[in-house]
Design a binder for these strands. Sequence first.
RNA 1: GCGCCGGUAGCUCAGGUGGACAGAGCAUCGGAUUUCUAAUCCGAAAGUCGCAGGUUCGAGUCCUGCCCGGCGCACCA
Length: 591
Amino acid sequence: MRDALTRLGIEGDPLVRAAQEEQFGDYQSNCAMVLAKRLGRKPRELAVEIIAHLSIAELCEPPEIAGPGFINFRITPAAMARRLGAIPAAGHAGVERLGIERTPRPQRVIVDLSSPNLAKEMHVGHLRSTVIGDCIARVLEFAGHEVLRENHVGDWGTQFGMLVAYLRRIRPEVERNPESLIIKDLEAFYVEAKTQFDADDTFKAQSREAVVALQQGDATTRRIWQAFCEESLRHCHALYGRLGVRLVDRGESYYNELMQEVVARLEQRRQDDPNSAVRLSEGALCVFLEGFKTRDGQPLPLIVRKSDGGFNYATSDLATILHRVEHLGATRIIYVVGLSQKQHFEMLFAAARKVGFVGEEVSLHHLGFGNMLSPGGKPFKTREGGTVKLRDLLDEAVERARRVLQEPREEDWSAGRPDRASLADADMQRIAETVGLAAVKYFDLSHALGSDYKFDLDTMLSLEGNTAPYMLYAYARIRSIGRKAGIDFDALPATDLVLEHPAEIGLAKTLLRFAEVVQVASDELKPNVLTDYMYELSRAFSRFYDKRLGVRVIDASPETIRLSRLRLCDLTARTLKLGLDLLGIATLEQM
RNA sequence: GCGCCGGUAGCUCAGGUGGACAGAGCAUCGGAUUUCUAAUCCGAAAGUCGCAGGUUCGAGUCCUGCCCGGCGCACCA
């Protein structure tokens, strides 16, 4: 299509995409209508001309023009077989990428994700950033970019003075042996400290002193603080480990010196040009930006140094940008943070550009997401109104998964299905863990990022519909086919594909769309594009394997057909596995 | 008050730069089945896409106004 447009001397996007309905073919192009409008011509005439300049005879049937000027393409089974056949087989280079190429223009990308506060336990509010951020990082990495996952944890501020002082009071041994620190329940520890802080003026004073000591670099205080942060991070990483999330922790404290640098640079700017956007206002050092107003309609600046001389969120965020651009060499920074922070990031980015911290060559992107709500549609809280720990949420999901998985076991015994019924309890626990976590992650990623969603265990653990269990089942089932057919998929040679039956063609068609789907998901940073496809692929497979409308596989004959169908199974399994991997979801060989 | 995001089938949600009668899952109803893992497949019913205007050959999608919900609006992160 692109060539045809070029030959016609027309610039424009071919707008080719999978057809919405089967009657319109496999792919459709809507460009004739768009271009005709621009060129002041009749859409159908232009469509005719475009078709005349196409050279796609060996790819598809002669294209048809329909309606106001749609161009419909129907790929020939032979062409599908060729394309699928070109996907590297087991043992060949590129098999793990299914032949999908890397971007020709790799970037160094920072994904800012998770970012819990170390003073407390991670709670449900951290789930989305962690899961989405990890997925985005995986997708961009797969696309060929160099991705750095930065966990901007909160490890600084007044509350840490309080925590250090409290540790000193009730665990004095920490001072001598900071490495030994274990805090079972971080949340309870914080609450205790806070209660003490509010009730005890002496303790309050000690807390303040600890903050000062921390800032001045007092060795003992820092050791205790560090011990606390490390213990808190161990709590975090227990969860990251379960979730299969890798990231690099870099606390706010890391930027202490850079924050001085940020302020110094801005101060310089202000003094060089008193009329610049950087000005003092009510004693605070501010960056004034266009388009932002306070409640009263006054200009709303980004405050970079408070009137008391202290730093705030904006200061550390600017320092972070400086670090990422100047030290880490990032050309793209993606913040996976809730949508409620939207204005803050707009101001932050505008300010960073205004004061020259980042140039045109660097893109700053706030990938905002909606709230995770309780099943009732209200903010997610415990019955008492407190925050729900992320660990508790995941535990519950796993426990519920275990119950769902165990339900049919009794029947399996009587139905003579030892495949599932014979699973040892340990295996069952492992499977439940995978399924439970997969369900939570998949459910999150299957919603459009910007919208809120209701956390509903029943729905996400359902064995039917667009859920992780359905997808994992589809995968496990295919792997089981390999075992039963006595074929090692990991040693299956490249075979000629035979695509004759509608079920074969339907599956092949869906398989071929994977590369494009990954491309869209990666370009637009939309995980749900991927999940939607995964579901379609799983369904296409179920149809393929259906006893009435599908085809025989394990006992198919002749052997060429059998191998072809097994290869389709394998391609499906590999695609599912890769797709799930991009979502950050582990697969199971058996469930 | 200003700004941003959302309002799509009974429920939960999709809808790539405006495009072919608005899609899916659950739930409902009806089929298939002595299973190559039925944890499946096929089909039906179900929506004036918040409301009212406008732009366009064509609007869930763009513009304006209004209604409803959420979030944000200078020294908290």
